[in-house]
Computed example of a mutant assay.
Amino acid sequence: MPYPFHWVPAAGQRHATLDARPGGGYPTGISVETLCGVQICADNSEFGWLWPTCPECAPETRRLAEEYAAAPKPLFG
């Protein structure tokens, strides 16, 4: 099972969000709320994934990942 957050390039950084991914991704122009608390428009451009990670989203993703790792997992399916 994947982490509950997803990365999305926007506003010159790679932000994280808990918003659902329509069709498995965030098309350019779609509005998402980030873990750092801002509403931004995705920029799924060729270079967007090379932008630096948002320094405010990163600690929240680590916290969520640690919670996920510590949570009990089902034995089957």
Rank of each mutant, 00 (worst) to 15 (best):
G37S: 09
V38Q: 12
V38T: 14
I40N: 01
I40A: 02
C41M: 10
A42Q: 02
A42C: 06
D43W: 05
D43R: 08
D43P: 02
D43Y: 01
S45I: 07
E46S: 13
E46Q: 12
F47R: 15
F47A: 13
F47E: 14
F47P: 03
G48E: 07
L50K: 15
L50W: 00
L50H: 13
L50D: 14
L50Q: 14
W51D: 11
W51K: 07
W51R: 15
P52F: 00
P52D: 14
T53C: 01
T53V: 13
C54S: 09
C54W: 02
C54K: 07
C54N: 04
P55F: 00
E56T: 08
C57G: 05
P59H: 11
P59K: 12
P59Y: 07
P59T: 05
E60T: 13
E60G: 01
T61W: 03
T61Q: 10
T61F: 01
R62M: 05
R63F: 04
R63V: 03
L64A: 07
A65E: 15
A65T: 11
A65H: 08
A65I: 00
E66T: 10
E66W: 06
Y68S: 06
Y68G: 01
Y68C: 06
A69F: 04
A70Q: 13
P72F: 05
P72I: 04
K73W: 02
